[in-house]
Design a protein around this nucleic acid. Structure first.
Length: 272
DNA sequence: GCCCAGGAGTGCA
DNA sequence: TGCACTCATGGG
């Protein structure tokens, strides 16, 4: 099944390479992508996007195809902030993905004080090692492991695959999720959701914001990492020093559009 | 060899 | 509350 969608506000490359997803790789003239236990191939061609998959309903929601991103782009530009306007123009094809919640939780625990190539490598190694095998168009892929499967691994297992000192965070969180699930978070939003997420070991403010934004689609979150610290100081003339206060500043400024605008800014700053 | 990366936990004032 | 320190590791 192929989803055919307008490409003006959907850049496959920018959407995948802006740090919200780690399980994708270039393939022919596009990318293959794995989310939880599902695979798709997608590409821009002309002014269209084509998504080839076995579960179109899942990926329709996953790529947020019901949302009007032209409106988000326009609102970003209307702030009249020079760097934001520049960033929105560069990244107007970025979409916020609706990703699997558990996968986001474990992935962003690995992301702390780490770089994207190594995050991808570690996650891929874990999936290849203990994820269920899935087949798509004759090729084999590995699903993201269940919390139960993750919980049955030792600290040494995660460390040997490159997780470093985050090994115990993964073990601890996996055991909790395997025991309790995360459905008790489904109805939460905003500060309440963030607060609950921060109860997992290895999840601080920034990781909680990423999980809330990319896993729960809570677009009122504005994750501040090292790149957004630079944006804050260099492009918004900010004077606060703590990430907590920077986050509060941005979320107060951008409200429910925080998550989208954060991705524009992250993408622009990271690509010099 | 040094600095950095989608930071967080801990201890101490 | 607010610092300083520490954590593992590959890339540039």
């Amino acid at each position: 099944m192929i989803i055919d969608y307008p490409g003006e506000y959907f850049s496959v490359k920018d959407t995948l390479e802006c740090g919200q997803i780690f399980r994708f790789s270039p393939c022919r003239d596009g990318y293959t992508l794995v989310s939880a236990d599902k695979v798709c191939f997608l590409k821009n061609e002309g002014d269209r996007v084509y998504i080839d998959c076995d579960d179109p309903d899942y990926f329709y929601a996953y790529f947020d195809l019901d949302r009007d991103y032209k409106e988000i782009y326009s609102e970003a530009v209307n702030y009249g902030i020079p760097f934001l306007t520049h960033a929105a123009n560069k990244g107007k094809g970025i979409r916020i993905l609706n990703q699997n919640r558990e996968e986001m939780l474990f992935s962003f625990i690995i992301s702390q004080n780490n770089n994207i190539p190594r995050i991808k490598k570690t996650i891929e190694a874990i999936c290849a090692s203990i994820g269920d095998k899935i087949t798509f168009h004759g090729e084999e892929y590995s699903a993201f492991p269940s919390a139960e499967t993750l919980a049955s691994q030792s600290k040494e297992f995660f460390r040997s695959l490159g997780a470093g000192y985050r090994d115990e965070y993964l073990c601890d969180t996996a055991k909790r999720v395997a025991l309790q699930g995360i459905s008790h978070l489904d109805s939460l939003k905003g500060e309440a959701l963030k607060c609950e997420l921060m109860k997992y070991k290895g999840v601080g403010g920034k990781v909680a914001d990423c999980v809330a934004l990319f896993g729960f689609h809570d677009t009122s979150r504005f994750p501040v990492d090292t790149w957004l610290e630079k944006v804050y100081a260099e492009d918004f003339c900010g004077t606060e020093k703590s990430r907590k206060k920077m986050t509060a500043y941005f979320e107060n400024l951008f409200g429910e559009k925080s998550g989208f605008i954060q991705q524009y800014l992250f993408h622009a700053k990271r690509n010099v």
